[in-house]
Structures are given as structure tokens and as C-alpha cells.
């Protein structure tokens, strides 16, 4: 297991207008591991996740202080090339959101934007991405069907494949299983464990068991602050803070 830190969050604050949504967050996220973010609704997990790939830029009222570094590059610096940076940090959403295009076109979307590929190379890339999420064998004969005709699980896998096709380093997942049934959830969790061999994963989840199953490191958030962060095993067995224990044992949240 590598221990290199890929994402470093330094005294990061975020305001929606006057509302102080993230308070002095300091976090380190190690490469090729799964970091889980847990905490009650509204504590800022999604906000932090969206800060890591600068999606909050789309919201006019957001102000930030502090810095986030990805690969030692300060991502809120003016000189940053936003386009190539965002490619490096992909995002998976709560509800699967494939484009209303064919399976193939969904995966080919990113490569078509960035890479001058021949037809064959593009096809290879699509195949590789679909193989990485275990969809290839199911869908190789139906690449032309609309992605919207897939099951929820397949759609979510497709959304992951769509990201993998642009070779990101980090995958941000905001409650990626919350729209899936328990069996599908289990299979997607397996996928996440596989993916961590090649990618750094940050996952937000409301499902304690899921955090315990998939993550190496867990951060507990409360009201915009990191209450506790540590190895998942420790957080779930011997948390050092009382609040964390209360939340995990379900007395709260």
C-alpha cells in the first residue's frame, strides 16, 4: 500500500454567502486508498467533495479561503488549468446520470473531447473502460442501446466507466449506491474495492456498514467540521471522540 498523500486540504473554509458551510478543514487523502466521509445530513460532505474538483465554481455565492492541493498543485490558484485538472478528478453522483446517448457514446464522450484517437483506438478505450467496471461482457453486443435502458446498477457502472475513459487519478463518489438495491450495492462496493488498486477514491455515504466495508480511512463530519479522522478500523471500533462513537452506534443522525 502506497502512503503518498495525493490530496492535501489545508485550513479550507467555504461560505455560501454568509453561511459558513466548511470550517477550517484539514485533511490528507492517501493515494490509492478509499477515504469515506460520514456524518449527518447537511454537515458539508458533498460541499467538500465538490470543492475537491472545483465544482463549486458553478455556484455564484460560494467564497473560499484556505487551499486544497492535488498532486502538490494548489487547485484554487489562478494559474491552474481547470480543464486538465478536472479530468484528473472525476465525480460519480448519487443518482446515476448517463447522458441520453448510447452506451458507447457515453463512454466515448470524454476521449472524443481530449484525444485524437483513431476509430480503433477509441473502441479499445471504450472496451477497456467497460471491462474495468465489469460491464463489457454484458453489454458488448448492445453498445448501441440507449444508456437509459440499462438497470440502475448498470447505469452507475457506466457512469464510472465514462470517468475512467479519461484516465483520472481520483474518483469522488457522492453516495454512489443510495439509489441501488442491496444486491447491486454489494456488487458496486466490490467494484470500488477493485478500483482502489488503480485510483484514489473518496466516498460519501450514509451507510455506516458500507463505510466500514469499503474504506481504509474514515472522516466523521459534524456541522462543517472534521470531528475525527483515522483508519476505518479504529474509527469503527475505538473512536477517540465521544460524538463519533454516538454517531456510529446510531444514537444520533
Amino acid at each position: 500500500m502506497s502512503e503518498r498523500t495525493i490530496i492535501r486540504i489545508n485550513h479550507f473554509n467555504l461560505f455560501y454567502d454568509q453561511f459558513h458551510a466548511l470550517k477550517d478543514i484539514c485533511l490528507e487523502i492517501p493515494e490509492k486508498q478509499v477515504t469515506a466521509m460520514i456524518g449527518p445530513s447537511g454537515c458539508g460532505k458533498s460541499t467538500l467533495l465538490r470543492s475537491i474538483n472545483r465544482m463549486n465554481d458553478l455556484i455564484d455565492t460560494v467564497r473560499i479561503t484556505g487551499q486544497i492541493l492535488v498532486d502538490d498543485q494548489p487547485i484554487y490558484d489562478k494559474g491552474l488549468n481547470l480543464v486538465s485538472f478536472r479530468k484528473k478528478v472525476g465525480m460519480v453522483f448519487q443518482r446515476p446520470n448517463p447522458f441520453p446517448l448510447s452506451v458507447y457514446e457515453n463512454v466515448a464522450f470524454g476521449p472524443r473531447l481530449h484525444m485524437k484517437l483513431t476509430k480503433k483506438e477509441l473502441h479499445g478505450r471504450v472496451q477497456q473502460s467497460l471491462e474495468d467496471v465489469d460491464l463489457w461482457s454484458d453489454l458488448k453486443d448492445s453498445l448501441d442501446i440507449s444508456a437509459l435502458d440499462l438497470s440502475g446498477e448498470q447505469q452507475q457502472r457506466l457512469c464510472i466507466a465514462r470517468l475512467l475513459a479519461v484516465s483520472p487519478e481520483v474518483l469522488l463518489m457522492d453516495e454512489p449506491c443510495s439509489a441501488l438495491d442491496p444486491n447491486a450495492t454489494q456488487r458496486v462496493e466490490e467494484l470500488i474495492r477493485d478500483l482502489k488498486n488503480d485510483y484514489t477514491i473518496v466516498i460519501v455515504t450514509h451507510n455506516m456498514a458500507q463505510a466500514a466495508r469499503v474504506s481504509d480511512q474514515t472522516a466523521y463530519f459534524y456541522l462543517g467540521e472534521v470531528v475525527e479522522i483515522g483508519p476505518t478500523e479504529k474509527i469503527f471500533t475505538t473512536p477517540s471522540k465521544k460524538e463519533t462513537e454516538d454517531y456510529i452506534t446510531g444514537r444520533f443522525g
Binding site: M55, V83, M91, F93, N97, F109, G110, H114
Partner: peptide
């Protein structure tokens, strides 16, 4: 859906590419 725009940007599309495609 806003998430379409976000995915597209997260795939490294520019704003104009996102609008266009």
C-alpha cells in the same frame, strides 16, 4: 439536469464544449 453539466465539466470539457455537446 445540472449533473449533466457537472459530469461534462468533470470529464474535462470546457464550458462551451459542455453547452455544445
Amino acid at each position: 439536469p445540472q449533473s449533466f453539466r457537472e459530469v461534462s465539466l468533470a470529464l474535462g470539457a470546457t464550458r462551451w464544449q459542455t453547452i455544445r455537446h
